[in-house]
Simulated scan of single mutants.
Amino acid sequence: MAPFTLLWIAPLVFVLTVAFRSFDDITRRGLGSLPASFSFDGFTTALQSGIGRALVNSAVVTVVAVVASLFLASLAAFALSRFAIPFRRTILLAMLAGNLLPPQVLLIPVARITESMGIYDSLLALIVVQVGFGLGFYTFVLYGFMRGIPGEILEAARVDGAGAGRIYARIMVPLCRPALAALAALATTWIFNDLIWAITVLRSEAKFPVTAALLNLQGGFVSNWNVVASGAVLAAVPTAIVFFMFQKHFVSGLLVGANK
């Protein structure tokens, strides 16, 4: 695995090396040469060029969208898995089928819908789109997880007088914590790194998330490779932190049911 590991981390090391080099060092010695300087100028310029504001926008959209998506998906999965809802399998397949459509086909309709709703060019529009397109997949995953929880646990709770709301909050959600943590890590990565929906429903640069701001940064500093690399590093750090925070739960969530 050593050669594969080196092949995997080589681009990351290269980007980090370029990010901490000065512009004069790169222009004088070349982009592929060994660094002869150590500087934070690239990070300073990237933050002053809008990456800092874009990181805040991405954080707001990601946190709100992830929380709203998992909350709604857990409610839907609980209802579909534990109540005799007519056509529940059809409903579940319809929700999942929405994720199979290529997003490129829906760009214009989504943009027109957000305009008609009066939320175009706002972070709310991006949050609504992210929640809508992720809800089906999250519900499908949580539905399978909740179906595997023994029904005797819920029957015992009903005998003790617990209603549907208390069963959901006190039993289902705590038992689904590994699955919710795994989905939270995936959803954070997908939403934070999304570009296509950001440039579809947003127009003002002040409201761009970090991916769209990084695209503008690459256009404005096309020859300043240290600035572009610094912006890429800043954009990658939050998702890396989230993944390492949820790593234990993420792995356990992926292995749920593997021993059955």
Rank of each mutant, 00 (worst) to 15 (best):
A258I: 05
L123M: 08
L183P: 04
A94V: 08
W8D: 05
A77V: 05
F4A: 15
L183H: 05
I199S: 01
L55S: 13
L101N: 00
D194H: 02
V159N: 14
L154H: 06
F246R: 00
R29K: 09
Q130I: 04
F243K: 03
A181S: 07
V233L: 10
I9P: 11
A46M: 10
G52Q: 13
T45A: 15
A258Q: 08
A94N: 13
F43E: 07
L142G: 11
L126G: 09
A213Y: 07
V237C: 00
V110L: 13
K260P: 03
A19I: 01
N224I: 00
A181P: 04
P102M: 02
I127V: 15
R166L: 12
V60M: 13
I149G: 12
T27I: 13
A59F: 15
S49M: 04
Y138T: 05
A19F: 06
M1E: 11
I85W: 02
V110N: 14
I108N: 03
I191K: 00
W8Y: 15
S116C: 00
T45V: 15
H249V: 11
A59V: 12
V131A: 05
D25Q: 06
A236E: 02
L55C: 11
L72E: 08
A79M: 15
E115K: 08
G50E: 10
A258L: 13
A169Q: 02
A2S: 13
I91S: 13
L186Y: 06
A94T: 11
V56S: 09
F140Q: 05
G161H: 08
L100Q: 09
T200G: 04
T239L: 02
A184K: 01
M1Q: 08
